[in-house]
Nucleic acid binder design. Structure first.
Length: 463
DNA sequence: TCACCTATCT
DNA sequence: AAGATAGGTG
């Protein structure tokens, strides 16, 4: 049996409806209400009273009778708890097991018992409880429960910082809880445990990297955000920049993946898979891929060295985006260790391993207008059929191979002669721009034939 | 809906 | 300036 208390209480309600409510008090209430207490007790003695006191303190309370039930709730990860208050003498004898799980999850635990057992208290503290009390809990104790929650979280953050080390030069940032900076130190998501290569400042989206602390929590959304929410007192005026530092090491991993995939098959998702770096996201890989393709990325070491020598702005590095083919490889350019050269790696990933889920397009298909390089959005294609991902074989799209396509009079002259024909980009609006325009995956021709409009798609065209 | 891409933002 | 994000596209 699980009882929920205070779930639907809108702590802002009164304060907001009556304009006279002081904001400071409102914040206090909000802060308290964000703290979710898991109360575990099989003895009904004084239980109601404890619940009432907790509610008086504006905490959100969930109550279960047995420690085993509490463990299940914690491990399910469906609900976030900020603190556990448990009777150590649970009939299922799982009191210490509960303590263990809560500690692993980084949740502060108050253990209680009907009697004042010093030995038990010592064992509890040795096993990570922050308090052992004789029931019933007093108002004084409950009132300062939030401090223990906050302290525990701060401690976790400190440990995280030690793990991570320096903060990548982004400068110190304090945690602003409604204007209160805690300890004047960098506070970010306490669960932002960074593994290995990635120096992360996270947003609520990162996943696997939290496993060390968040056991049994599968998805991050609800959990992370609410956790943050509590820490921030529900305030979103805390500005945290989330950045992944692309260390040389990480970049090398990236480039290894790029090499493995080969020209025309470098897609963020694939690269991410091959890199296999916990916590790294596809978007981050995509962003880095863009930088590298444009030759706009330099390793931290190189940047530092440059700043040291040039004493100031490095000027313009890299190059402007230029036409390239879909899935193109970034350069193995400056600042990038070139021990990995093209073709030297044995493991070539089969094109068939590429995920086709939800992608019906001829990915990797070279956009081609025959003999007319100006019409190629992605530059000179690599006419290597073995490089072509699935779906790009010439028989994969019977529609495009229709008579209509092959009997089309003279595509080139059509383009050149049609007054509205112009080189466009993928951003052009295909519904309003007559002429040629180029999308990510293929080149289209849109022309007006009198009042009629025809659109042809050219796919799977080999040079 | 997902993934890719470019442009833009911070 | 690096890296995140927005928005268009298939």
């Amino acid at each position: 049996m699980v009882w929920e208390f205070g779930n639907n209480v809108n702590v802002w309600g009164d304060a907001r409806s009556s304009s006279s409510a002081p904001p400071v008090a409102s914040y206090h209430h909000a802060m308290m209400h964000e703290i979710h207490v898991l109360l575990v007790d099989h003895e009904s003695d004084g239980l109601v009273n404890t619940v009432k006191l907790l509610e008086l303190c504006q905490y959100r309370v969930t109550f279960v009778e047995l420690a085993s039930a509490a463990i299940s709730m914690l491990l399910s990860g469906k609900t976030r708890f900020d603190v556990v208050m448990a009777n150590i003498n649970s009939p299922d004898l799982h009191g210490f097991k509960l303590l263990q799980h809560a500690v692993t999850l980084g949740i502060p635990v108050v253990l209680m018992s009907a009697d004042d057992n010093t030995f038990m208290a010592m064992r509890a503290l040795e096993n990570g409880a922050f308090l052992y009390i004789k029931k019933p809990a007093t108002m004084e104790m409950l009132r300062c429960l939030w401090q223990h929650v906050l302290r525990e979280k701060t401690r976790m953050i400190r440990e995280r910082d030690i793990l991570v080390g320096a903060n990548h030069g982004h400068g110190p940032r304090g945690l602003d809880v409604k204007g209160v900076t805690i300890n004047n130190r960098t506070v970010e998501n306490p669960n932002d445990i960074v593994e290995g290569l990635v120096g992360m400042r996270n947003k609520g989206k990162a996943k696997k990297k939290y496993r060390g602390i968040r056991i049994g929590v599968d998805e991050d959304e609800e959990y992370d955000q609410s956790q943050d929410h509590m820490m921030m007192g529900g305030d979103n005026n805390v500005k945290r920049k989330m950045c992944t530092e692309w260390t040389l090491e990480l970049h090398e991993k990236f480039m290894d993946a790029v090499e493995e995939l080969g020209e025309g098959r470098c897609f963020p998702k694939e690269i991410l898979e091959i890199m296999n770096v916990p916590g790294l996201t596809r978007m981050q890989v995509a962003s880095h891929l863009q930088k590298c393709r444009n030759d706009n990325w330099r390793s931290p070491e190189e940047r530092k060295a440059f700043q040291a020598t040039q004493n100031g702005s490095p000027g313009s590095i890299g190059s402007q985006p230029k036409p390239r083919r879909f899935g193109s490889k970034p350069q193995l350019g400056r600042g990038v260790p070139s021990q990995v050269q093209q073709g030297t790696r044995g493991t070539q990933r089969s094109p068939e391993t590429r995920s086709e889920t939800g992608r019906s397009q001829g990915v990797g298909v070279v956009p081609v207008m025959a003999n007319n390089a100006n019409h190629q959005q992605y530059g000179t294609p690599v006419p290597d059929p073995s490089n072509a991902p699935p779906g790009s074989n010439s028989s994969s799209n019977t529609k495009d191979q229709s008579d209509e396509f092959f009997n089309f009079p003279d595509v080139d002259s059509l383009i050149q002669n049609y007054p509205g024909m112009q080189q466009g980009s993928g951003m052009n609006n295909p519904t309003t721009d007559p002429g040629t325009y180029h999308t990510n995956r293929f080149t289209r021709i849109r022309a007006k034939w009198g009042e009629e409009e025809e659109e042809l798609e050219f796919r799977d065209v080999k040079l």
